[in-house]
Amino acid sequence: MYIKINNNHIELIKSANPYLIFATIFVFIIGLYYSLFQSPPDYIQGDSMRIMYIHVPSAWFALMTYSILAGSCVLWFITRNPLFNVVARSIAQVGMVFTLMSLITGSIWGKPTWGVWWVWDARLTSMLILFFLYIAYIFLWQAISNKELASKISAALAIIGFINIPIIKFSVDWWNTLHQPASISKLSAPSIDESMLIPLFIMTIACFLFLVTVSLIRFRLVLIENKMLRTSN
C-alpha cells in the first residue's frame, strides 16, 4: 500500500505537461465558442446567464478539490505516507483559485439578476468560509517553520473544515437562501435546456483539465520544495 514517487514518475508527469497545456487551451476555446456564440440566452436572465458557464464549474471544482484535499489529509494522518501530504499541498492553491473565481463571477451575475453584488445568505457565506479555509490551510503550512508540525496542524484544519462541504452543498435545500437550488442533480432531470448543457459540459471538462495540469506542475514544485527543505536542514 506504500506508494513511493520515483524519478520515472516525475519524468512521466514532466512529459505529459505540454500535452495537458495544449488540451486545456483547446477545450477552453471550444467551450468559449459554445458558451458565448453557440448557445441561446435564457428566457428571463437573457445573456447574463452565460456567466453560469464559468461560475458553476468553478464552484464544482472548488468543492471537489477541497474533498480531495481533506481526503488526502486523512490518509496522511493515518498512514503518514508523505505522498498524501504532497498531493494535498499540490491541489490546495488550485482549489483556492476556483473558489475565488466562483465568488467573483457569482457576484457579477448577482448584480443584474438579484440587484445586489453580495448577500449574506447561507450559500454565499459558506462559500466565503471555504475560501478562508483554503487560505488558512496554505498560510498555516508556510507560517510554521517546523514542517512536521506545520503538516499536522494544517491537515487537522483541512479535515475539520470538511464539514463545510456538505453545508455548502445542501445549504440551498436546508435553509431559505437567495441563491437558487441546484439545477443539475442526479435524482431528477436537469432543469437546464440541452442547448445550455453542452457549453456547461465542455467548460467543466476544460476546468478539470486546468485543475489537473496546474496540480501536476505544483506536484513537481512541492517535491522539489521538500527536497530543498531536507538538504537545508
Binding site: 468559449l32 458565448l36 440566452p41 437573457g46 445573456d47 447574463s48 452565460r50 456567466i51 464559468i54 461560475h55 468553478s58 473565481m101 467573483i104 463571477t105 457579477i108 451575475w109 448584480k111 443584474p112
Partner: peptide
C-alpha cells in the same frame, strides 16, 4: 450581450 455586456465580458475577462 443583450445589454449585459459589462457583466458577461468582465466576468469572463477576470476568470
Amino acid at each position: 450581450m443583450g445589454g449585459y455586456a459589462i457583466f458577461v465580458w468582465s466576468s469572463y475577462g477576470i476568470f
